[in-house]
Design a binder for these strands. Sequence first.
DNA 1: ACCTGAACACCGTTCAAGT
DNA 2: ACCTGAACACCGTTCAAGT
Lengths: 218, 218
Amino acid sequence: MVDAAVAVVDEGGPDALSVRAVAGRLGLNPNALYTYVPSRAALEKVVVERVLGESDRGLLAGQAERWRQRIASYAGSLRAALLTHPGAARLLMTAPMDGPNALQVGEGLMGALVDAGLSDDDAARACYSIIVQVLGAVALEVAETDGRPPLAPEADRVAGRREALTGFDAECWPHTAAAIDVMAQWISTEQFDWSLARLLDGLAGAAAVRRTGRDRAP
Amino acid sequence: MVDAAVAVVDEGGPDALSVRAVAGRLGLNPNALYTYVPSRAALEKVVVERVLGESDRGLLAGQAERWRQRIASYAGSLRAALLTHPGAARLLMTAPMDGPNALQVGEGLMGALVDAGLSDDDAARACYSIIVQVLGAVALEVAETDGRPPLAPEADRVAGRREALTGFDAECWPHTAAAIDVMAQWISTEQFDWSLARLLDGLAGAAAVRRTGRDRAP
DNA sequence: ACCTGAACACCGTTCAAGT
DNA sequence: ACCTGAACACCGTTCAAGT
């Protein structure tokens, strides 16, 4: 049933996910699906949990000193899993994340952040800021596609953005005009890694404050 | 027409936004709405642009030294605007952001980031990381509500989360068990500000690297 | 428990036609 | 341009009934 639901999303995009479509794929009457799932919303949660499970949570384990790489590589794995099921990425932001896989990701992230030197409380705060950054980035990336895998190559999607970003008043929007190439790359792996790296810099700073008892002077 | 669409979202939640509902509110036949809007997707974009326009972009202007406050206060304003139209917040992540208001927000953010000492290219990258953090946080916050304003007070929503976060195996999930109170507050203003502050720390670090030509030693 | 059959109140979108 | 009327192919969900 979960496979059927994921298949429907993959083939038809996120809007195609419906009780009737999944039932049809299983050779059942629409209402027979209510034996397995209590509502359409639950159908979405099932898909989200499955795709979340395709990310490699093992990447979060490792040596304390390598906490940055552990988080960065897991983030990449999660992004990859979501990009192979783009429709599910869209669902991730709208369906509450409270399944067992979500819990395990949180636990692993917090472990890496405690290794970074953060307190338990700050590790939890940092965990959420990372989740927000990663899921937000993938959701916005996928929002510009039709949600059906395989996605067009990243370079093609960047090129499409660059075209869409031409022909406005450079006098009125100087910074925008100066940054069109970078803005076209907002959905790229490079931008994804850069954003996460800057966030991790800031989180490492919070750990340093805790170690030294003061803010770092420039 | 835009007012009618926003009213439909506010009264019925994001799922209630439909061509037929908006047409009905205007006293028209369903298909008459295609005079104003070419599709249901366009209806979503119209709502997003309107709500984005309710944030106070003037907050992004100001003295160069106050770049942090300018960004933080605008982020708060945008979050407030989205929380008064929770249904629109959900749409923000699924509809591409390419309207004029979105462009203006980007321009203002990049201006503040250039004031922070970032290069044009890094300002554009930083701009996107901030957009992702802010929109992602609000989207996940709203995902736990029914999307109809007014939202329950933040304290009530936090309390609800705390209840939902009890009763799992503390042996299996030590960090999670140690951080339940903070995790309950993931959707709070405090967490929102903390995450953004850490990201801004990291972005300020990128500016410092540019100034000094080296990485900051601990 | 798992399923069928029928129904209800919805959708987005299109077409032909009117003003 | 702006609208009506009718239609098509869809929805989620419920109910009564069967095994």
